[in-house]
Computed example of a mutant assay.
Amino acid sequence: MSWFKRAKEGITTKTEEKKETPDGLWNKCPSCKKVLHNSEQIENKYVCHHCGYHIRIGSKEYFEVLFDDNQFEELFSNLTSGDPLNFVDSKKYTDRIIETMAKTGLKDAIRAGHGKIEGQDLVIACMDFDFIGGSMGSVVGEKIARSIDYSLKNKIPFLMISKSGGARMMEAAFSLMQMAKTSAKLALLAEAKIPYVSLLTDPTTGGVTASYAMLGDINISEPGAMIGFAGPRVIKETIKKDLPKGFQSAEFVLEHGFLDFIVDRRQMKAKIASFLRMVTKK
């Protein structure tokens, strides 16, 4: 009967003494489905060490990967979205902004910072997909424009990390205007002969692809990233043809001449630093 009841007293563990596994200690690779320890992910730059899949990350992680010792000065951190159209769908746009800010800890879908990469000054603007799908609104365009102005004033190279579902519909034409605004600012950067590196990550779509994401002095991407304008389903229904295998993947885009090269995130910092040394002759 001792199989079915405790033979000794005092060996039970009280509920308050039980230790639970901390949240976020383990994750599963979206590609190969193997379990990944959080510390291993950080050490491996958020790349699965089983299959090489590049896990989606945000500005916080990209700054950790690229800036020397994660030391940087955040730029224009006080900018937040307005509601110029008084947009209401299932809820007010202003309410959605407040909820997303509370959930993500971000002010909008982009952060910018100035720091060093292998000892060289660099301004980085990085998009965050967690903030309304990384959609491009007025704040995204304004932060990019101000970051470019900062680069121009201080003669510092500029890196744009794109990760977006496209224009933010709640701002309509105000959102679409950011395409022209950022492209015009990048023309000034080119005129001043200050290097601009565009890094396209998974996914880069819509108006972002149609503007600043494809205007780099070099356009680079991570392996397997989705890059395109409209979605595959929309394109297929429009042209009434099956799409080729791997359509809109970084590898497909590279093969057709829209990227300069694809680089593993674990070598990203060294590659960008090497390019900057080459073009600035430092």
Rank of each mutant, 00 (worst) to 15 (best):
I124R: 00
G113N: 07
S77Q: 09
N219W: 05
K282T: 15
S138K: 04
S211Y: 01
H54G: 04
S135I: 00
I218F: 13
P244K: 07
Y150P: 00
K103P: 02
K28W: 10
Q267H: 14
M179N: 14
I227Y: 08
A7Y: 12
M169D: 10
T94A: 12
L79S: 08
D69S: 13
I235Q: 01
T21K: 12
T15Y: 05
K28Y: 14
K19M: 13
V123N: 01
T204S: 07
G206T: 01
K143N: 06
C51A: 07
F275R: 01
M278F: 15
E64P: 01
V123K: 01
L254M: 10
Q71A: 06
L254Q: 06
I55V: 10
S59E: 09
K153L: 12
R277I: 11
D242K: 09
C126T: 03
L276T: 08
F252Y: 15
T209V: 01
A7T: 09
R277M: 15
Q248T: 10
E222D: 11
E40M: 13
F158C: 07
W3V: 07
S31C: 13
F261Q: 11
I124A: 03
G134A: 03
G141K: 03
L66W: 11
T100R: 02
A173T: 15
S31D: 09
R56W: 15
K143D: 04
E40I: 06
I57E: 01
H49P: 04
